[in-house]
Amino acid sequence: MLSPQNAPVVEATLPVVGAAVGDITARFYERLFEAHPELLRDLFNRGNQANGTQRQALAGSIAAFATALVAHPEQRPDAMLARIAHKHASLGVAPEQYPVVHEHLFAAIVEVLGEAVTPEVAAAWDEVYWLMANALIALEKGLYTGAGTGPEALWRPYTVVARLLETDDVATFLVRPADGGPLPATTPGQYVSVQVELPDGAHQIRQYSLSGQPDGALQFSVKRVAGTPDGEVSNHLHAHVGAGATLLLSPPFGDVTLAEGDGPVLLASAGIGCTPMIGMLSHLAATGSTRRVISVHGDRDQLAHAFRADLQQLTAKLADAEAHVFYEQPAGEWPAGRTGLVDLAGVEVPAGTTAYLCGPLPFLRSVRGQLIAAGVRPADIHYEVFGPDLWLGAEA
């Protein structure tokens, strides 16, 4: 899809742009929020902006997209953009926001690279941007249509009907549509966006995985995060939201979902990464699945392990399932072979296994490597990461 005249220009300048893309994205966000402070207040995650992970993710996605175009100029790598599109749809990103991003991104490129940005170079990277933007716009349009909504009507009020404390730092919220209407269709592994109004008037948004399948309700779980602004939404939910409260939720989105079939499945998680895995396990148990199911979870200790009892109960309901739990600092007696970080050496991974991973990036890297060494195809390993995806393209 990259034009013949621009492909060699992008290839020649990719090392320069790639080396400076971190500075470019930092300047881009500075410009964007100077011109549109409402975007930082009501759309972008202030925690991810403060810790720099959003800038890293944007830089990585631009570099990965441009590299893919150079390697295969006749193709548009839509598959690698699916994750971004799902996140954008869950935030209500609209097509008219892309020209705004273009304006400030290209101004940042000129500021950082200066005279190196000739008209020829600008035209080539303009094509890269719009290939990426138009691909996302098309993907997001399809997601909105599938959800029966649009960016202008994304948020729906839900009533909290119950709140359950899983651990000292993890709370589960059960919610039903406040309008009495039907629940949206869901797929195991998806997440919802939750929008809350904070004391300073900001409307901040966070994504939380669906962590079960209760009758007549949606269920998501929130781990309390330390620090400000990193934990401003999770702490608000823990401190101020209980039964009877109203929350604004998006429809469910997410590109890492449990595929139908009868082949073996491995669900690997660490910490609060257990939430989408419990959602998948709940679905498998509710449908009476006869698939071979292997659950692997790592945590600090038993008290920090959310859904510990659910993991045991759901595993017992399945015809062919097993669970392997690792604790770094177990309380009381615990098998030595299950003490420390997750180690798949003692886990038999059947041929044809499809794996789903969720947890911190070091965990994902480690487990993915172990699965590949065990014979699992890279294409059959799917991962979900909370927050900006700093691993974009790593599974290719």
Score class of each variant (00 low, 15 high):
residue 328 E to M: 13
residue 155 W to V: 15
residue 55 R to Q: 11
residue 277 M to I: 14
residue 390 L to M: 13
residue 393 G to M: 10
residue 332 G to Q: 11
residue 147 A to T: 12
residue 330 P to L: 12
residue 186 T to I: 13
residue 88 H to N: 07
residue 355 A to G: 10
residue 95 P to Y: 06
residue 68 A to V: 13
residue 366 S to I: 02
residue 203 H to N: 12
residue 264 P to A: 05
residue 299 D to W: 04
residue 371 L to I: 14
residue 375 G to Y: 06
residue 214 P to G: 04
residue 281 L to C: 01
residue 126 D to L: 00
residue 121 V to W: 03
residue 63 A to E: 08
residue 72 H to R: 15
residue 210 L to R: 03
residue 128 V to Q: 01
residue 203 H to W: 06
residue 315 T to L: 00
residue 281 L to S: 00
residue 331 A to Q: 15
residue 353 T to N: 03
residue 345 A to R: 12
residue 237 L to I: 12
residue 215 D to H: 05
residue 145 T to F: 05
residue 122 A to H: 12
residue 52 G to Q: 08
residue 222 V to N: 03
residue 381 I to E: 00
residue 99 P to L: 10
residue 264 P to W: 07
residue 204 Q to W: 02
residue 69 L to P: 08
residue 248 L to T: 07
residue 305 H to L: 03
residue 5 Q to H: 03
residue 138 A to C: 02
residue 357 L to C: 14
residue 149 T to S: 14
residue 318 L to H: 14
residue 34 E to D: 15
residue 13 T to R: 11
residue 393 G to S: 14
residue 58 L to C: 02
residue 82 A to S: 09
residue 322 E to H: 10
residue 42 D to P: 09
residue 172 T to E: 14
residue 313 Q to S: 13
residue 43 L to F: 12
residue 58 L to V: 10
residue 46 R to N: 06
residue 75 Q to E: 15
residue 240 H to V: 12
residue 180 G to E: 12
residue 329 Q to D: 14
residue 363 F to E: 01
residue 19 A to V: 09
residue 273 G to R: 08
residue 33 F to H: 11
residue 395 E to F: 03
residue 287 T to N: 05
residue 262 D to L: 09
residue 40 L to W: 00
residue 206 R to V: 10
residue 128 V to H: 01
residue 336 A to K: 07
residue 235 N to L: 10
residue 200 D to E: 12
residue 175 V to G: 01
residue 317 K to T: 13
residue 183 L to F: 07
residue 25 T to E: 02
residue 102 H to T: 01
residue 394 A to T: 08
residue 363 F to K: 06
residue 59 A to Q: 05
residue 247 L to S: 02
residue 12 A to W: 03
residue 224 R to V: 13
residue 390 L to W: 04
residue 152 E to P: 05
residue 153 A to G: 11
residue 261 G to L: 03
residue 263 G to D: 15
residue 230 D to R: 08
residue 123 A to S: 14
residue 57 A to H: 04
residue 218 L to S: 05
residue 52 G to Y: 07
residue 15 P to T: 04
residue 303 L to M: 10
residue 131 L to I: 13
residue 290 T to H: 11
residue 264 P to Y: 08
residue 114 G to N: 02
residue 3 S to I: 13
residue 46 R to W: 01
residue 256 V to L: 05
residue 301 D to Y: 07
residue 175 V to A: 13
residue 196 V to A: 00
residue 230 D to F: 03
residue 94 A to V: 10
residue 238 H to S: 02
residue 5 Q to S: 13
residue 83 R to M: 10
residue 146 G to S: 10
residue 129 Y to M: 07
residue 149 T to A: 09
residue 9 V to I: 15
residue 301 D to A: 10
residue 7 A to E: 12
residue 292 R to S: 12
residue 121 V to R: 02
residue 385 V to T: 15
